[in-house]
Amino acid sequence: MSDKQDNVTSSSEASEPQIIHMDYGTATEFGAIVERTIDERGGNAAVQMPQWLEDKQPDRALSTRRSGRNRLKTFPGVAFISVLVILFLYLPMLMVVGFSFNGGRQALLWKGFSFSWYGKVFHDPAIISATLTSLEIAVIAMVLSTVIGVMFVLAADQMSHAGSAVASWLINASLIIPEVVLGVATMGFIRMIGLKPGMLPLILAHTTFCVPFVVMPLRARLQTIDTSCFEAAVDLGASPLVTVRRVTLPLLTPAIVSGALMAFVISMDDFMISNFLTSAGTTTLPIYIFSLIRKGVNPSINVVATLLLLLAVIVTVVSSVLTNRKDD
């Protein structure tokens, strides 16, 4: 029994070099121990630093005045450029938000604060129908890609090394290939297999390029989970599927939610690939906005853009909160 207990606790670090705990006196003694251990174990040993040495802060006397003056944080221009970069990223979008409250008929001539364009957008049948199409595709693609992604991440561990690498490459390829190429290629492909442009190809293509966004946070989360939880569940008699359902999935929930949200946004935002797969009845919101913009600047674009920006803010904040949670 004790042997088994031992197995459980040490199985996760079995491959790591053995750690020797000792108290060391002087630095010379410590060095001697290191040398002897390396001699004895053929260089495959690790010596743990004593706690006092780990915790030790540099003595004030050791740091020279020169290094004090040369603080890294005073690199000239770094802070200035950084603030400019953040302004560069945000000012254009703040401007869109500001102009969405413009009361005038022209997009750029300020005629006072008003919600009137929001009212117009919420009653514009073309925008509503494009939004509904986008939402429908995004929700279905989100669900499908989340299910597929979770299954893949949990199964990838069991595949051979090469198999898992090839499968990951296959899944991530859609991230790297330029969207234009993927769009026209998918259009050629669906034509080849006899599908008509429309809802089904849109959903399938969206699912495909959403999967990598689901897989990324899941993989990161899985690395931080203590596998002894799973071993404990199995030891207590849970079947493999019950372990997955009752232990793995709850532990992965923040990553699953964050991945699903990312998939939702990526699907909502896609213009390039959808543009080649859409048919007359399935205009998505980005395609509709694009056509509006090409017709000329229009105040209702500001409103839709602000709402899409709001979606990005909500999703980013929620998924950041989920992935930064420290409680488990």
Binding site: V147, I148, G149, M151, F152, L154, A155, A156, D157, Q158, M159, G163, A167, L170, I171, A173, S174, I177, V181, L182, V184, A185, T186, G188, F189, M192, L204, A205, T207, T208, V211, T227, C229, F230, E231, A233, V234, P240, T243, V244, V247, T248
Partner: peptide, 27 residues
Amino acid sequence: PGMLSHWYAIPAIIVGLLFTLGPICVI
């Protein structure tokens, strides 16, 4: 423990084959 058999990776691989590798080959 806590993982799934490698068969569960098949949907992801099919999706990748059909809608990433397939289109590339076609193009």
